[in-house]
Simulated assay, not measured.
Amino acid sequence: MIVQKPKKLMFHLRLVIALSTGLLFSACSAESANEIGQYSTKSVHKNEGKDFKSVYATANQGDPQAQFQLGVMYEDGESVSEDKVEALKWYKKAAEQGLADAQNKMGVKYFYSEDVERNYGKAIKWFRKAADQGHPEAQFHLGEYYTNIEGSPIDYNQAIKWYRKSAEQGFYPAEFNLAALYYKGIDTEPNYSEAFKWYKKVADKGHAPAQFQVAIMYYDGLGVEQDYGKAFELFQTLEHEGYPSAQHNLGVMYEKGEGVEQDYKIAAQWYQKAADQGYSLSQNDLGSLYYSGRGVKEDYDKAFDLYTKAAAQGEALAQFNLGEMYYYGDSVSQDYNKAYEWYIKAATQGNQMAQERINKLKNEGKITR
């Protein structure tokens, strides 16, 4: 006798709580390094407008700022043929005279293996010299060294110390990482009020990952009074920039009626926007709406298709839901073996419901594995 499926909801409704793969802002990508380098660039332009000959002459007289500017000109090929070796020579001359911008630049060179062999020891030596003079980028890099760099000594107290020094000067990558450390509570209990304070500073500068974290903290009431309305507004801001995670969360809020009037149809529209970008959580949750016929016409075939797309990306809830469809024979022929295969995939990722189904299949003798 075929077991009849009770009318129920498939499993979904999970708010996305992080916009990026990791909380910490890392300078290791080219894009991030360019953003961080804007601080040094501002200092470089002190000599903007001077021709090469005059800068060269002043540098040869031992002026460290001119030496640094000459290094920039050689590195960028500005008014002279590009020459990385000459650039490094002049940066070093300026750094040895104690110019913080040049010391930081030397640190960056060794940190990222730019025109020299990577050497973290030399990088940290130069960063410390610049950081001790209050250079916020160098302070940031020291914080990063103690948290993010493979092979470096992990020391979160040192990381917080240097990130805070940099953050207090308004250097937003340091503000973001300081917030992340307080939020995660690495080596300590989370300090959500401090995390919110620093995330909010970065968010107010238009930084999308920080805006997302602030929205989550408003949603959960972490470090700030719970406010669905403010969370919703921030998710909307991010949605306008095309973030599928924000679109997904708007869908969740409409589906649950949090901060807005519950509306399954609008929820489905938001899930669809994110699903169209390949966002697996939204593919799963939209599939569940099609499965249950809420906000859209009930359609097991569409539900199955959406679950399949999400499951292919490793989404455990979708893998479990595919197992359910095979278990009950929805849109597909009832197949306990295929159901078992999908339950195994979900259970491997820690899905307890899938493990319970596996035990049930075995106890009822529906599979022999």
Rank of each mutant, 00 (worst) to 15 (best):
A316V: 01
E233C: 09
L222C: 00
K256W: 12
S43A: 04
S331H: 15
E255F: 03
D227T: 09
C28P: 07
V116H: 02
Q97R: 07
A268S: 15
N119F: 05
L281F: 00
Y243I: 15
G287D: 14
T348F: 07
L181W: 09
A95H: 01
V16L: 02
F111Y: 14
L317A: 09
E75S: 01
R164E: 04
D285C: 06
V116P: 10
E239L: 15
D335Y: 03
E239G: 13
H12R: 12
K200T: 11
A274Y: 00
A346N: 06
L15P: 02
E258G: 01
E144T: 04
E78I: 15
Y112D: 07
Q4C: 12
S26H: 00
P153T: 00
Y183D: 11
E144D: 07
A354T: 03
Y219Q: 06
A102R: 02
N359C: 10
V214K: 08
Y172L: 11
G223S: 01
Y74R: 10
K256N: 10
G257V: 06
M253F: 08
L88R: 04
N337W: 06
G170T: 05
A57G: 14
Q262A: 14
Y307N: 05
D301L: 09
F25T: 10
G221T: 12
K345F: 09
E315Q: 07
D335I: 03
L222H: 05
A303T: 08
L9K: 04
E48A: 09
Y199R: 10
K8R: 14
A310S: 11
S333Y: 11
D285K: 06
A346T: 06
V80Q: 01
E86N: 14
Q349M: 12
G350W: 08
K42H: 08
A318W: 05
H12A: 10
Q103F: 03
H240Q: 15
A274K: 10
D115N: 12
T348D: 12
Y279I: 00
N148Q: 06
Y279M: 05
D301F: 09
K362R: 04
A87Q: 07
F320H: 09
Y39M: 09
S166Y: 04
Y91N: 03
K338Q: 13
G62M: 12
V85F: 07
N60A: 12
K309L: 09
E175S: 00
Q319A: 01
L317T: 07
E364Q: 11
H240W: 14
W90Y: 15
G71I: 11
G121E: 07
K122A: 05
P209G: 10
H141E: 03
I358K: 05
K184R: 13
E341C: 02
Y219S: 02
Q272T: 15
K265Q: 14
A275K: 08
A246G: 00
K92W: 03
M1F: 11
G121K: 05
